[in-house]
């Protein structure tokens, strides 16, 4: 790693009460294998816990896995808390069982791409990389 270059740091979070962490763990391992530094929160996190961790760890990205159907509550709340904490530059993305209409609605509320079941992990990796490139590129230009 050359001087000043920054690893992409991602918080992989599992909000809510559902315990299905297979997806979260697979994506966390895949992100690691893609060279990201991944902070895994463990299960049963509240939005407040997730945002607190994201701030302390100074991550670039928060990736949440939601399979419980509570996505319309959880994603907007985490987005709002991040913004309020002065971390509006953190990308909030994720995956789970999320109907198309809801994906659109969440997108309008500042949530990034949401990946459905069966998405190859490579797609999520490429998305995060691309987003990071744009962000750091813009930062350097400005």
């Amino acid at each position: 790693m050359s001087e000043g270059e920054r690893k992409i740091r991602v918080l992989v979070a599992k909000p809510g009460l559902d315990g299905h962490d297979r997806g979260a763990k697979v994506i966390a391992s895949s992100f690691r294998d893609a060279g990201f530094e991944v902070i895994y929160t463990g299960l049963h996190q509240t939005p407040e816990m997730i945002v607190n961790a994201a701030i302390q760890e100074d991550v670039d990205v928060v990736a949440m896995s939601v399979l419980s159907g509570a996505h319309m509550t959880l994603f907007p709340r985490v987005r709002r808390l991040l913004d309020e904490a002065g971390a509006d530059d953190i990308l909030l993305t994720g995956g789970g069982i999320i109907p198309e209409d809801d994906v659109r609605a969440l997108g309008e509320q500042g949530v990034g791409r949401l990946f459905g079941p069966g998405t190859p992990t490579g797609e999520a990796i490429a998305y995060v990389r691309e987003w990071h490139r744009e962000k750091t590129g813009a930062a350097n230009a400005g």
């Binding site: 690691r32 893609a34 060279g35 530094e37 895994y40 929160t41 996190q45 607190n52 302390q56």
Partner: peptide, 24 residues
């Protein structure tokens, strides 16, 4: 890969909301 999986916070979840604690 040069990547890392940092999982120590999981065991510190009890502290997650404590304003007096900062975990990195």
């Amino acid at each position: 890969s040069g990547g890392a999986l940092l999982g120590d916070r999981i065991r510190m979840n009890d502290l997650a909301l404590d304003e007096g604690i900062f975990i990195r």
